[in-house]
């Protein structure tokens, strides 16, 4: 979970991403912004799936709650952007704590099913609470401060939020709390006998994951100038789960790679063929078969083989 030289590579990666508006065209600025949003969403889910070992099928609920909260606060109540963002994270965290309080009492598939049920409950509220959420049509026409209304300025705003989220999540994952989550994932019974309050740690992980998903959702709402019920639907939870699995759930940075790969693949294949689902399915199948540990596992495998070849160690 702590790749060699990981911090330097991450900082280098963020530096390269920051250059996109300088070297790339407008399209790549938009594409990278969207990837950053989904990467933060995937990182938040990995707290649950990769670190705590809890498979959630309802993570999109907090993504949508954060998104709706942010656009409603900025537009309907004309709350300033920073306060709206902070409140969106807070509301998502409170919702996650409330839902998590019930869910963490269950394990494995029952936990996954309950998260799915709560997610669909949130989706139903988004559909039915028309005066507030816009109902089936969604909340359209969110207002943005002039400072970030330009695509490039919004890109740097998203990069700033993403980087902050990435650093905070990294600190959490490498802390004692992060180690406790891994211990629970590896052997819950042993963790209990070691004196850990497993249910409490799982609830804390659930709340943290929900809060960061809410932050990603708030960014999406601002980016799209609106939020839609589909963001809470189970398919959205499924998509972010695929991002985590594709990138590698046993790597901190894996979900970022997974989000980038899946988003680029979906976007690019859709540009070339109407049968994008078949092509995407074949590619994903290939990746999963070749790299069961995800793209992060594949990359670390390449690096290991390269190191071995330079030092003369035959790994075959």
């Amino acid at each position: 979970m702590r790749p060699r030289g990981g911090v330097q590579w991450t900082l280098f990666g963020l530096f390269l991403v920051a250059l996109v508006p300088v070297v790339g065209e407008r399209y790549y600025v938009d594409l990278t912004t969207q990837i950053l949003i989904y990467a933060l969403f995937a990182l938040s889910l990995n707290i649950l799936v990769g670190y705590c070992g809890n498979l959630s099928f309802g993570h999109a609920a907090f993504f949508a709650i954060g998104g709706y909260a942010c656009v409603i606060l900025t537009t309907t109540y004309e709350v300033t952007l920073i306060i709206s963002l902070g409140l969106s994270v807070l509301i998502s965290a409170v919702a996650a704590a409330a839902i998590g309080y019930v869910c963490v009492r269950l394990a494995a598939m029952h936990f996954a099913m309950l998260t799915l049920a709560f997610s669909m409950l949130v989706w139903s509220i988004a559909i039915k609470w028309t005066p507030v959420t816009g109902g089936d049509d969604g909340f359209v026409g969110a207002t943005l401060p002039d400072l970030i209304s330009n695509p490039v300025s919004f890109f740097y705003f998203a990069l700033l939020i993403f980087s902050t989220g990435l650093i905070l999540l990294r600190v959490i994952c490498t802390s004692t709390f992060g180690r406790a989550m891994i211990a629970i994932r590896e052997n819950e019974t042993r963790a209990t006998f070691m004196g850990m309050d497993v249910r409490k740690i799982r609830l804390q992980a659930f709340t943290i994951a929900g809060a960061f998903a809410g932050l990603a959702g708030a960014l999406l709402g601002l980016y799209n100038r609106g939020m839609y019920p589909e963001s809470a639907f189970w398919t959205e939870s499924g998509q972010v789960l695929i991002m985590v699995l594709l990138g590698g759930m046993h790597s901190f940075i894996g979900p970022v790679l997974g989000a980038a790969a899946l988003y680029i693949l979906e976007t690019m294949i859709n540009q070339y063929t109407e049968y994008w689902q078949i092509v995407l399915g074949v590619i994903l199948l290939g990746v999963v078969l070749i790299a069961p540990d995800g793209l992060a596992g594949l990359l670390s495998g390449f690096r290991k083989r390269k190191d071995d070849s330079v030092t003369g160690v035959d790994s075959e």
């Binding site: 399209y27 938009d30 969604g138 999406l220 799209n224 839609y228 976007t267 859709n270 994008w276």
Partner: peptide, 23 residues
């Protein structure tokens, strides 16, 4: 003409519309 699949999802359609305009 350039066609993109909306997948009946507003966020997907928004992203595709931007891609059609900017790319």
């Amino acid at each position: 003409y350039f066609i993109r699949d909306t997948k009946l999802k507003p966020a997907v359609a928004s992203a595709a519309a931007r891609e059609l305009i900017t790319k």
